[in-house]
Design a protein around this nucleic acid. Sequence first.
DNA 1: CGTTTTCCGATGTGATCACATCGATTTGAT
DNA 2: ATCAAATCGATGTGATCACATCGGAAAACG
Lengths: 199, 199
Amino acid sequence: MPRTRGPGAHHDARRREICDAVLAVVDEAGLAAVSQMSVAAKAGVSAGRVQHYFPTKAQLLEAAFDRANELATERITALTATDDGPRAVLTAVLTELVPHDRATTTHMRIRQTFTAQALTDERVATRLRQAYAELHARLAELVARDVASGAIGTAERPEHVAARLVAFAEGLAYHVLIGTHPADVARAQVVDAIDALYR
Amino acid sequence: MPRTRGPGAHHDARRREICDAVLAVVDEAGLAAVSQMSVAAKAGVSAGRVQHYFPTKAQLLEAAFDRANELATERITALTATDDGPRAVLTAVLTELVPHDRATTTHMRIRQTFTAQALTDERVATRLRQAYAELHARLAELVARDVASGAIGTAERPEHVAARLVAFAEGLAYHVLIGTHPADVARAQVVDAIDALYR
DNA sequence: CGTTTTCCGATGTGATCACATCGATTTGAT
DNA sequence: ATCAAATCGATGTGATCACATCGGAAAACG
């Protein structure tokens, strides 16, 4: 039995595979297309296995959303790691929200889908609020650092600046997704919004 | 037979009632909860009538989305009618996108839901793009007027300014909907973004 | 008034789904 | 090796759904 570390390493790996299959189905066909069958087919496993690891559909969706947030956090953390100063990190993170390749497009399609789901699913809503609280806090801290250094001069609270920039980038992102706004214009507008902070 | 105007006045009225019921179900329970049964119950009619006016579910959803866009256009037209100048109209329309009462909350919940649906439903996507093209054109025209008058000084194209402001207002709106951002702050931020144009 | 079309409620049908159940196999601990 | 737990495939079940069908009621029209 191949096991990399501790008991249940396979258990977690299989859960992750199934969650990734859910996210792939959501990306390609939306939440309505998610079922034991479709997920099992996408993951290349039996429907029984899906049911074994996620006895109810609600648990499956919640776990998949957790997985999406986990992936998002990884991406953001990677961008935050390169410590080129708050401005560079802010720019990197926020422009990454605008779909410009397969990975970012998929990511935002999934996010948009679950945001809609959150409107009528309190469990998803709770997770979404938690994810945004963390993102806003991270970015607000970057803003606060440059406010303290004097690079940013504004009376606006750092948390509000962060929330505003995220909302702007996501609003643009949705319009890019549905094709009503060019990705390059959106990206430039995000960069402009950040630059405006430093004037 | 009570008929107000021309043949089929009742026909159109009943279609509208059913579409409004769809929108009510979407608002309260999401697109997943839309079925002949749920819509008929919400409208207080028989399932047979729903099926008669909308033979397929796709037609029902498309008609409901058209109805939502019709209502949105009415609201915007009402705000545009009061000709207090481009700036006042821009402010009125864009702040109206931020949920602050029952009507605006419902409107944005429905919009968010259909935006997600558009990601995997090309018929809805087409309608969504058309609706945004009209909104952007309307707002761009207002911006262009104040650019021509010199009240707004910017090198940005009016269509891009309009798209940017809408994206920002909607991005904030979604965060207000899910409860990660206060409505009054969002509204003030929208007003600020417009004010920035006039500096 | 008659008839032709529209309306619409009721019922049927096949498909899909979430979830339960259970037997067989595999795995991990001792 | 042995046992107990975890895994997992297969099958069953009841519910829901979209949509088809059809008969009668109502309305529009000549």
